[in-house]
Nucleic acid binder design. Structure first.
Lengths: 224, 224
DNA sequence: TCGGGACTTTATCAATTGATCATTCACATT
DNA sequence: AATGTGAATGATCAATTGATAAAGTCCCGA
């Protein structure tokens, strides 16, 4: 569980669109905000934005439906708070812990970070899957607000690897989403993986081995 | 366009749940059924089942909303007809054109088929993405009714390749969905690929090269 | 020309949706 | 104890949803 100790000002720049005073929520009222975000994360990831009802979210959070509009200004603002929350957690997994001399090392760390995050929080992938199937205001906001830095870093690493002749010969324009699909989709579709293979529980070591396999799949130049 | 010459009895086993007489639609009334299916394919792929409204589908098809319940018995039956239609098209791409002595050849043909299909009809992947994020009656029906044979064949090919030591060292239980993600996601997320790289148009040769790159990514044993 | 079935069109239904309001509650400060 | 403020609660709004009913249209065979 990563959810526990999140900073309470985490979503302050996003949830308060201007109406609800978000500048001084000091007491434990943030508790209900957190519970609403957690419940909304589940509902949005499962059913998409349109499919998730504010009443279902409220019930899951043990709250009343109008509290969503009270603590957040709208369903859409709640959705943005959820995305904000998930991306904050993602950064913790992808943050470079040092400088990298070798782009292969950086790539390796990037893949592993994304694998570990996807295993623990598949909700972000699922949430994006729902929105990314079409042009969409929410998706555009997500990309512009959060995804760009990640995409840019991924592109930079990939370009460096390609320049050294390490990369697999998949189409350039498709390389990045191919990576993303290969890494995140298994965890996003985990309900059906488990439906086939029974309940699974990947330990750290297994995930590290899996990540290394992915690295070698996309960097055949490593062996030669 | 593959849509054109589909047999008119294509969805007869699915759309007519028992009420609307589906046994003798002989004249050109099937035209509106086809237009409804096409429109529904777009809407469902974009917005998911809950997010797509029957009125939006009808408008896109140039029809009236009650015609959906007349020609199909319900929104859900229309959704199933769409899936039926898409899987029929998929089979045309994946059908083995002969027997394969070498599992590598069969794998190569399978990957290429799925790449070509995903490029031409990304709607199926998008539609599945919407449903597969959770346990779901619709998804279960889709798997039980259509996906099983495809999954089984993929598993069989992969197992044969693994037995020969060709496969990449990614986790077994994740291998299949990793494959699926790597192959289909780029096309499912094409709107955003194009948002980054500008409009793209892949010719057959490019797709074949891309597919071969994917094959080599997952079968590093080919080189050694 | 008439009758009847297939299909279309218009109107409308109950249910659910996100959102808003007025009231009430909890609680701290004076 | 009085008061004021932030939050919770219940009622309710208009809009949209999938579905149905009923009237209308078309066309073919008798």
């Amino acid at each position: 569980m990563i959810i526990g100790g999140l900073p309470r000002l985490l979503c302050s720049n996003v949830s308060g669109v201007g109406d609800v005073g978000s500048d001084a929520p000091d007491s434990l009222d943030l508790d209900i905000r957190r519970q609403l975000i957690d419940a909304a994360t589940v509902e949005f990831a499962r059913n998409g934005f349109a499919g998730a009802s504010t009443r279902a979210i409220a019930i899951r959070a043990g709250a009343h439906q109008p509290q969503i509009n009270y603590h957040f200004s709208s369903k859409e603002a709640l959705w943005r708070a959820v995305v904000d929350d998930l991306f904050t957690q993602l950064s913790a997994f992808l943050e470079p812990e040092g400088t990298f001399d070798d782009p292969v090392d950086e790539f390796r760390q990037w893949v592993l970070g994304l694998v570990l995050f996807s295993a623990e929080r598949p909700e972000l992938s699922r949430l994006i899957m729902h929105e990314a199937a079409s042009y969409n205001d929410r998706m555009n906001w997500l990309v512009d607000t959060f995804a760009r830095p990640f995409v840019d870093r991924r592109d930079r690493i990939w370009a460096a690897l390609k320049a050294r002749g390490f990369t697999q010969a998949i189409d350039d324009k498709l390389a990045e989403s191919t990576l993303l699909g290969a890494i995140t989709i298994p965890f996003a579709l985990m309900p059906h993986v488990e439906r086939i293979h029974g309940p699974v529980d990947f330990d750290r070591e297994t995930l590290e081995r899996h990540a290394e396999g992915l690295v070698r799949a996309f960097l055949p130049g490593l062996d030669g």
